[in-house]
Computed example of a mutant assay.
Amino acid sequence: MPSVARRCSGAGAGGSCAGEVPADAPVPLCDRHLALAHDFVDDDSGVVDLAEEPCPACGSRLAVRYPSGRACGVCEWRFGDVVDSELPAPRVDVVYYLRFEGRIKIGTTANPRQRLARLWHDELLAFERGDRQVEHARHVQFAACRLGRSEWFDRSPELEAHVALIAEGQPDPWDAHARWVSAALSLRV
């Protein structure tokens, strides 16, 4: 049975469109109407590309272009906003989860790069936004697998499930940290 050419269901100022629909089109629109729909969606969700210069907040070169301007693809800092270098860096407390051999460390810091550089670890598993109170709550929550009075814990299904939940959708914990710092910076602009 021969295939019947589909006609575009889009409409313009002059009425219905008579354009032919490409065979692989997901919706019954001609190339011109598909392009218009694409541009409409791009205006709302942005187009990902490379930035001409690194993001001043997190250093990423990934950018998202919107009609209103560009934003960092990692931390969402708006390009063109100026970081006031005379102000101290914003304090963003995090609870970190490190793996070293068969153990997991739950600690907290406001300067994770400096803190993690001083600790032996095999892998940074996740960051959770929070301070000493959140850290203490995690120590209590996972007390059954705590090693003495240290911040180290034996791996357990409950602890690993918690870390997986925190890390879900964020394969690189540093991206989450960059977003939190950027959000704190943007409140000062």
Rank of each mutant, 00 (worst) to 15 (best):
C8S: 08
E168K: 15
V163I: 14
L98G: 05
L124A: 02
S3N: 13
P157W: 03
I104S: 00
F100L: 12
V83A: 08
C145S: 15
S60Y: 00
R7I: 15
D93F: 07
A143T: 01
A137H: 04
Y66A: 02
G102Y: 11
R7K: 10
W152V: 11
C75V: 08
S9D: 11
R103W: 05
L116Q: 04
R132Y: 08
D93R: 11
D131K: 03
R149G: 05
S186W: 07
H162N: 05
A5W: 05
S16A: 14
D122I: 05
A143V: 08
P88F: 04
S9M: 12
S45D: 11
R155Y: 00
R103L: 12
G12Q: 03
V181G: 07
P54I: 06
R99N: 01
T108N: 07
S182V: 02
R146V: 08
G148W: 08
A161V: 04
R179S: 07
W120C: 04
S186L: 08
A63G: 12
A137P: 01
I166V: 15
Q141H: 06
V163Q: 02
F79L: 05
D31V: 13
V4L: 09
S45V: 10
C145M: 00
R138K: 12
A176Y: 08
A143E: 15
R65W: 02
F142W: 04
S68I: 05
D175M: 06
A5K: 10
P54D: 12
A51V: 03
W180H: 04
L87S: 14
K105Q: 02
E86L: 11
R138A: 15
T109F: 06
R155G: 14
A178K: 04
A167Q: 03
